[in-house]
Design a protein around this nucleic acid. Structure first.
Lengths: 211, 211, 211, 211
DNA sequence: TATGAATGAGTCTTCATTCAT
DNA sequence: TATGAATGAAGACTCATTCAT
C-alpha cells in the first residue's frame, strides 16, 4: 500500500469515526424519530453523502451507533477488577462501578431507552452478540462463588438475575432523573447518586448474606 | 341542561377522550418524534382538525397525554391497601403491586422514557403537580412507621428513597425487556416478572429489617 | 306579520348587518386571501353557519361586503354640497372632502386595493352599478359648467378625468402611507394630509384656470 | 475557482434568481395571503425545498422579493436623464417617465399595494434603505433649482412633496385600473394613460409656474 | 474521496365549508 | 333562527435520500 493510499484510508477511518460519534450523540440526545441526519453531518464535519456512502441510511447508521455503543460500554466494564476483594466489598464495588458507568456514559442509557421504545427491533438484528454480552456476568459469578464458598453468601443466587437487580438500582435514578425531579421533588445530582449507590450496595449485600 | 345539549357535550367529551387515548398509545408506542398525528386521528376515529381544535398542536397533545397518564397511574395507585397488613407483608405487597402496575400499564413506562429522553421539558411545564405526586409515598411512610414502631424495621429510612429503590427494581426489567432479552439472553415474560418481584420484595424486606 | 315574526326578522337583519360590518373590516384589514371566516364570525358575534346561510361562501361574502362598501362611500359623497360656492372654492372643497373621506374610511381604500389586486373580478360581477357610480361626477360637471360659464375655468375639461386627478392626489398618500414612510422618510399623519390637500386643491385650481 | 465550482455556483445563483422572479410574480399577482409556494416552485422550475433552503419561509421569501423589487425599480429610475432639458420639459418628462415606469412594471404597484395592505410590516424590516430611497428625489431637486433659478418656477416647493404629487397622478390610474373601469366606465389602456400623463404633466407644470 | 445542489414523500397544521340537532 | 361538532382539501414546511460533478 502506498503512503498516499494509507493517508486516504486513515482519513476515511477518521471521518467514519466522527460520524459514528456524532450519530451516538444525536440518537441518544433525541431518540430515533427526532434525530436528524443533517445535525449528524454537521457535528461530524462531514457531508451527508459521506454518511450514506459509509453507513447506508438512517436505520443502518442507528444500528452501527447502537452496536458501537454496546462495544464501548462492554469495553469499559472490563476495567472492573474485583478478583482480589473480599466478596461483600466486591459487590459494593460492583454497584458503585455500575452506577458510575451509567453516570459517566449517559448516552448509553438514552440509547437503551430509545431501543426499548422501538421494541428492540435493531438490537435483535445485531448478530455479533459477543460484544453485547456483558462481561460483568462472569465477574458476578466469580464473586458469588467465592462468597458461597466462604459461607457468607446464600446459595442458589443466579448471576444474571443479580445483575438485573444491580443494574435496576443504578439505571432507574439516572434514566428517570427528570421525571423524578418533578414527581418526587428529588434533585438527582452526583452526590445524591453516590449516596444512593452506597445504600444500593448495602441492600444487595444484605440480600446475599446468609441470614 | 337539555337532552340535546347533553348529547352534544357528551359527544365532544367522548371525542376528546378517544383522542387522548389514541395519543397516549401513539406517543408511548413510538416516542415523540416518531409519533404521527395522522395515526392518532385514525385511531381516535376523529379528523385531524378535531385534534387541533381540542388540544392545539402536537406538543400540546403530548403534554395533555402525559398529564393524563400521570393522573391515571396515580389513580390506580390509590387502589393499593396495606394499612391492615403486617409491615413486612405490606412491603412485599407494595413491590408486587408496583411491578404489576408497570406490567399492566406499559404505556406509562414508555411515556416516562420518552419524557426523560426529552430532558423532562414537558413534565416541568405541567403545573398541576398534585396529579403527578405519587400517593405511594404516603403509604410507604405509614408502613415504615408501623414497622419501626413494632421494632422490625430499621429507623432512618426515607420513604421517598425507599420508593425509588422499589420503583427501580420493578421499572428496569419491564422497561428494558427488549435489550435484556438480547444482551442477557433473558426471556422476560409475566412468570419471570412475578418471580422477580418475589425476590425484589425479599431484597427490600431484608434491607429494612433490624439486623 | 305577527310581533314574534317581526322580532325574529329584525334580529336576523341585525345579524346580517353585524356580519357585513365584520366582513368589511376583515377583508380590508387583511386582503382576500388572508381574511378568515373564523375571525369574521367571532367579530360579528355570529356562528359560522349563519354566514353561510345568509351570504353563501367567502367569495359571496366578499362580494356583498364590497358592494355595501361602495354603497356606503357613495352615500357619504352625497353629503357634499358645493352648489352655493364659487367654482374655485367648490373645487378646493371637493379636494378636501375627498381627502377627508378617504382618511375617515380607510377600509374603502384597502378594499379597492384588494379588488384591484384580484383584477377586478368581483366588482365586474356587481350589476347594480347605480350604487357604484360616484355622484361626485355630477357635482364636478356642475362646478365646471359654472366655472366655464363665468369664464374662470378652461373649457374642454372632462369631469371624469378631473375626478381621476383629484382622487389620485388624495388616494395615493393615504393608500401608500406605510411604504412612503420608509421609502421617503415621510410621516403621513392627519396634519400632513390636511396640508397636502391644501396644495392639491391649489394644483387642481391652477390646472383649471384660464391662463 | 475551478470550472466545476463555477458551474455549480452559477447554477445555484440561477436557481435563486428564478425563484426570486417567480416570487415577485406570484406575490404581485395574488397578494401575500393568496400566494402559493407551490406555484412559485413550479414557475421557478425548482423544488419547494430549494425555496426553503435559499430563502427561508414564505415571509422571508416575500421580504426578499419586495427588497429586490425596490432595487429593480430604483435601478430603472436611474435611467432617467433630465439634466440637459429645460425645467418645464424636464418636469413633463419626469411625469411621463414615472407613468411609463408604472405601466411597464405593474408588479411593483401590486407589491406596494400588498405591502400597504399588510401595514408595511415587511418594508420596515428591510434595513438596506439605500435601495429603497428613490433617486428621483435628487433629480427633482435639481430640476426645481434650475427652474427657480431661471425664474420660471415658484420657490418653496419641496421636492419630496412634489414627487408624491407626481407619483399620485401616475399611480392611481394604473393601480385602480379595474375598479375605475366599472365605477367610472373608463377603459384604461395605454393610449388613455399616455394622454392622461400629458395632462398630468400640464397640471404639475402649471402648479410650479410663477403665476 | 468528497460535496453542493436538488427532490419525492411525507408531516404538521389550517381553513372554508357542512352536518346534525 | 341558530350553533357545537366535524372534516376534506390544501397549505407551509421538513427530512431522508440521491444526483452530478
Amino acid at each position: 500500500m502506498s503512503d498516499a493510499e494509507d493517508t486516504i484510508q486513515r482519513s476515511a477511518a477518521q471521518t467514519q469515526r466522527r460520524i459514528l460519534d456524532a450519530a451516538r450523540e444525536e440518537f441518544s440526545s433525541h431518540g430515533y424519530g427526532s434525530a436528524r441526519m443533517d445535525r449528524i453531518a454537521t457535528a461530524a464535519r462531514a457531508s451527508k453523502p459521506m454518511i450514506y456512502t459509509y453507513f447506508g441510511g438512517k436505520d443502518d447508521l442507528y444500528k452501527a451507533a447502537l452496536q458501537e455503543a454496546y462495544a464501548r460500554i462492554r469495553e469499559g466494564e472490563r476495567a472492573l477488577e474485583t478478583e482480589h476483594m473480599d466478596p461483600e466489598d466486591a459487590i459494593r464495588e460492583l454497584v458503585h462501578f455500575t452506577m458510575n458507568h451509567f453516570v459517566t456514559n449517559p448516552w448509553f442509557i438514552s440509547l437503551l431507552n430509545t431501543e426499548n421504545l422501538r421494541g428492540g427491533v435493531t438490537i435483535r438484528e445485531i448478530d455479533r452478540l459477543s460484544e453485547v454480552q456483558s462481561p460483568l456476568i462472569q465477574k458476578i459469578r466469580e464473586i458469588l462463588e467465592r462468597g458461597t464458598g466462604s459461607g457468607v453468601f446464600r446459595q442458589e443466587i443466579d448471576p444474571t438475575e443479580l445483575y438485573v437487580f444491580i443494574a435496576s438500582l443504578c439505571y432507574f435514578p439516572v434514566s428517570n432523573r427528570h421525571t423524578l425531579r418533578v414527581g418526587f421533588d428529588l434533585s438527582i445530582d452526583e452526590p445524591w447518586l453516590k449516596a444512593h449507590a452506597d445504600e444500593a450496595g448495602e441492600m444487595v449485600v444484605r440480600y446475599l448474606r446468609v441470614v
